[in-house]
């Protein structure tokens, strides 16, 4: 069986190489990177708004940030960093042809994403219970800087959360592709692109974490 396969491979080797040369992985990654810049600047716009309001309302921001659960925030950072590691490892495993390991690592990454979202849910429901949600009378009665802090918090963290969900969905698709053999050790650019997206989500959180949880 295996020898028959290898002879067949030898026969089609030439067109296969041609096709491989025609496929331009750098092109695919370049497209992905450019897309990531758009994402980066999407958040960049929010960071600009954040910097202006924080500059205008320094004490209010500090007071409002005391409401945040620093432990959960730190835990989430660790979870996301770990998922980034497993995603990088999943790609590496695929490069080395270890399909099983790669599948395991991709599942682990998705689970990390899920854990992150669960923590977020706990945090948000806690804030909602305290009345710190947009449109609530309690929040509306606070100083303007604190209203803005929570406005930015919900917008930025919420948008980031949506990105985590999107990233999880993308990796889930990659998982299916890997299982079905569409992602292979010599054609894994899709998985790489998914990884790039996931790492970007991680990088954005790296900035969100100190800016919302650790204001002194």
């Amino acid at each position: 069986m295996s020898s028959a396969e290898s002879t067949q491979a030898a026969v089609i080797a030439e067109p296969h190489i041609e096709e491989h040369a025609h496929r331009d992985d750098v092109r695919s990654r370049m497209g992905m990177w450019l897309f990531l810049f758009s994402e980066l600047l999407l958040f960049g716009g929010l960071f600009l708004m954040y910097s202006v309001y924080r500059y205008m309302h320094q004490t209010d921001f500090s007071i409002a940030s005391k409401e945040m659960n620093t432990f959960l925030g730190t835990l989430n950072t660790v979870i996301l960093l770990t998922s980034s590691l497993t995603m990088a490892l999943a790609i590496n495993a695929m490069q080395r042809g270890k399909k099983g390991l790669s599948i395991f690592l991709q599942i682990f990454t998705i689970l990390c994403g899920a854990a992150f979202m669960v923590n977020k849910f706990i945090e948000w429901s806690h804030e909602f219970a305290k009345g710190n949600y947009p449109g609530s009378a309690i929040l509306a009665s606070k100083p303007k800087g604190q209203i803005l802090y929570f406005g930015l918090y919900y917008s930025m963290v919420g948008l980031h959360g949506i990105h985590v969900l999107v990233g999880m969905t993308i990796i889930a698709f990659m998982l299916v592709f890997t299982i079905r053999g569409k992602i292979t050790p010599d054609n894994y650019v899709k998985l790489e692109a998914a990884g790039l997206y996931w790492h970007l989500v991680d990088i954005i959180w790296i900035f969100l974490f100190p800016l919302f949880y650790l204001i002194t």
């Binding site: 600047l41 947009p134 209203i147």
Partner: peptide, 30 residues
């Protein structure tokens, strides 16, 4: 590629502000 996301997020924030009354630009919310 560089500037379109900025208006994208700005307009998105106006939507969010209208739907959820999140304080971003509205002067009554600071």
């Amino acid at each position: 590629v560089i500037v379109t996301p900025i208006v994208g997020i700005t307009l998105l924030m106006v939507i969010v502000e209208r739907v959820f009354h999140v304080g971003i630009f509205d002067p009554t919310l600071g």
